[in-house]
Simulated scan of single mutants.
Amino acid sequence: MSPDMTTATARRTPADKHDERRRALADSALRTLGELGYARASLREIANNSEFSHGVVHYYFHDKLELIVYCVRQYKATCVHRYDGVVADATTADGLVAAFADKLVETIVEEAPMHRLWYDLRSQSMFEVSLREAVLQIDQTLEDMVWRVVSTYADLAGAAPAMTPHVAYGLLDGLFQQALLGYLCEREGVLDDLRAQVHDLMPVLLRPA
Rank of each mutant, 00 (worst) to 15 (best):
R22V: 01
T107C: 11
H58D: 06
L96C: 03
D27I: 11
T32Q: 01
K17I: 11
F127M: 15
Q140F: 11
D193S: 11
A47E: 02
D173K: 15
H18S: 07
E111Q: 14
V72E: 14
R22L: 04
R73N: 12
H115S: 04
T7F: 13
M1I: 10
V57L: 05
L136C: 11
R44V: 11
K103W: 07
A162K: 00
L156M: 06
A101E: 07
I138F: 08
A90M: 06
G55P: 05
L181K: 10
Y38F: 14
N49R: 12
D139F: 08
D144L: 07
L30F: 00
D94T: 10
P161A: 03
L191I: 07
L36H: 13
A77Y: 02
R122F: 14
A159M: 12
L171G: 02
R40T: 14
V146F: 09
L131I: 06
Y70Q: 00
T6D: 10
F61T: 00
L206R: 04
Q177C: 12
Y70H: 10
Q137M: 10
D193I: 00
M1R: 08
K64S: 11
F127R: 15
A93E: 14
A99E: 07
L117F: 01
L171N: 03
M202C: 05
L191Y: 04
